[in-house]
Design a protein around this nucleic acid. Structure first.
Length: 488
DNA sequence: TTTTGAGTTGTTCGA
DNA sequence: GTCGAACAACTCAAA
């Protein structure tokens, strides 16, 4: 009689390298069942957005292939995770289960329920740290409370022991036989008619190999100039690792050490410390967002600062649609929204400008923007997405000051100086010279005519006037401030 | 307990 | 064109 199997439950860790749960299972000597459960039924778990579903399909396909090269296949199940895992355990007579921990409050609840259920049935349940460098429960201020401000959080974690080194992938894994799997194609994760994701595929290689390549390229290349170029959407200055990190195709431990190693390798040859520090700090932002989510479980639904509950957001479906489609008449905003639609990703600097525009210029509830990003971003993350929207709106724990209102024209001129980013995503403006491309509505008619721009026809006039919108936003947010003072 | 320094990413205005 | 101040006060985190 064959030995009883051990289950590895994959979730946001779709990789074989630096996967402690998989490594533990491979070392256990038991036959291994590698399982993934698509759970769209458990209450509280957020259903993946469309772009994320597309990414997930590719990530699972890649993981399956990578596991098969090591001797086992990926077992796919669907349904409430608690039930699906229990069924799998019963069918296979598994005696052990391993997984890497998740941190979203709703997912944590599921995991705890599964763990206590299986433990009660006599199974060995082992969980591991793999998706965050610093687990929220382990990070507290001196007074024992969670951090709410980023900089002290950063200082605190940098003073701790360096994160562990990443693990190599297990070379060979013994599979368990006779476990039924659903077919990925039956899940409908990828669009068919129409296949709107075909254009996304031109920009990304889903899966662990693609992630590894992206990380190596970045560590060898753009990292050196990261501090200077990270804010430039017209240049390839960022890592673009976010979706790979989101699905765990690469671990933050792998990223941390690759970045630190790059610094050592180049030490003395160039002054790249600034780039490394800046990037590490961005990596810690991801950690901080999870930290915030852990202490604010409804981060995507509720203002962290309750005084914002009284804020009267404007209900303006036409403006929301214009924003979503990249038809606001502000080129840097529209380029960003079109980049998002075309690639499932938007440059960080432009995310801030576009988000600020929705919240401050249009006075539309940040939650509407958060939902749109959730649906369209391939890197949408239950922690980072709402945390950053709340930061922009000013309703977050460690929020931007309310009077900080991005001027789309200045932001465009400053961070896309030649206008190449706008040219790439808003072809109607491509013939405009740099001096006119960020404010076509202010350009002389002759310039517009020469560039083939017909405002209101092939590119919209601004849907709001910047100056008026800014004044309106300052007044509206001033009332929130007053409301906050009344509460105290 | 009290004090102190500080807080991701900006804009506008007037000198 | 450049520069500093104003735009708010509040509360966090540590000493």
């Amino acid at each position: 009689m064959p030995a009883a199997p051990a289950i590895v439950w994959f979730r946001d860790d779709l990789r074989v390298a630096d996967n402690p749960a998989l490594t533990a299972a491979a070392k256990s000597g038991q036959p291994v069942i590698a399982a993934f459960v698509l759970d769209e039924e458990t209450t509280g778990l957020r259903r993946l957005g469309s772009a994320s579903r597309w990414w997930l399909a590719g990530a699972l396909r890649a993981l399956d292939q990578s596991l098969q090269e090591r001797g086992i296949a990926l077992t796919l199940r669907r349904g409430p995770a608690e039930r699906a895992i229990a069924e799998l355990a019963r069918e296979s007579s598994a005696t052990a289960i391993f997984w890497n921990r998740r941190y979203e409050p709703a997912a944590t609840r599921v995991d705890q329920a599964v763990a206590s259920d299986l433990t009660a049935r006599g199974m060995d349940v082992q969980t591991f740290q793999a998706s965050l460098l610093f687990e929220p429960s382990g990070i507290r201020t001196r007074s024992g409370s969670p951090f709410t401000v980023f900089t002290p959080f950063l200082r605190h974690v940098l003073a701790r022991d360096e994160p562990r080194r990443p693990l190599p992938p297990p070379e060979r894994i013994t599979g368990a036989s006779g476990v039924a799997s659903e077919r990925l194609e039956g899940w409908g994760l990828e669009p068919r008619t129409p296949d709107w994701a075909a254009k996304l595929a031109e920009h990304w290689t889903r899966g662990e190999a693609g992630a590894r390549e992206r990380l190596a390229d970045f560590a060898d290349g753009a990292l050196a100039d990261y501090a200077d170029r990270r804010d430039r959407p017209d240049l390839p200055g960022t890592s673009r690792l976010s979706p790979h990190l989101r699905f765990g195709e690469v671990s933050p431990f792998q990223v941390w050490h690759a970045i630190m190693h790059a610094r050592e390798a180049a030490h003395g040859t160039r002054a790249i410390g600034a780039g490394t520090d800046k990037f590490i700090s961005e990596l810690v932002w991801r950690e901080f967002c999870h930290h915030l989510l852990a202490s604010h479980p409804d981060l995507a639904g509720r203002n962290v600062q309750p005084r914002f509950d009284a804020f009267r957001w404007r209900d303006d479906p036409a403006a929301l649609t214009a924003w979503q489609r990249g038809e606001t008449g502000y080129p840097i905003v529209d380029a960003g929204m079109r980049e998002l639609w075309a690639t499932g990703w938007m440059h960080n600097r432009v995310r801030m400008v576009a988000a600020s525009f929705l919240v401050k210029h249009l006075l539309i509830d940040w939650r509407a923007g958060e939902r749109w990003f959730w649906d369209t971003l391939v890197d949408a993350d239950a922690a980072s997405n709402p945390a950053n929207w709340q930061w922009v709106a000013g309703s977050g724990a460690d929020a931007a000051p309310y009077f900080r209102i991005f001027n789309p024209l200045l932001q465009g001129e400053k961070f896309d100086p030649a206008g190449d980013y706008v040219r790439r995503w808003v072809p109607a403006l491509a013939q405009l010279p740099a001096g006119a491309i960020h404010a076509p509505s202010d350009a002389p008619p002759a310039i517009l005519a020469a560039a083939g721009v017909k405002l209101g026809e092939n590119y919209p006039a601004p849907i709001v006037d910047h100056k008026a919108a800014r004044t309106r936003a300052l007044a509206a947010f001033d009332r929130v401030k007053a409301a906050g003072q009344q509460q105290d």
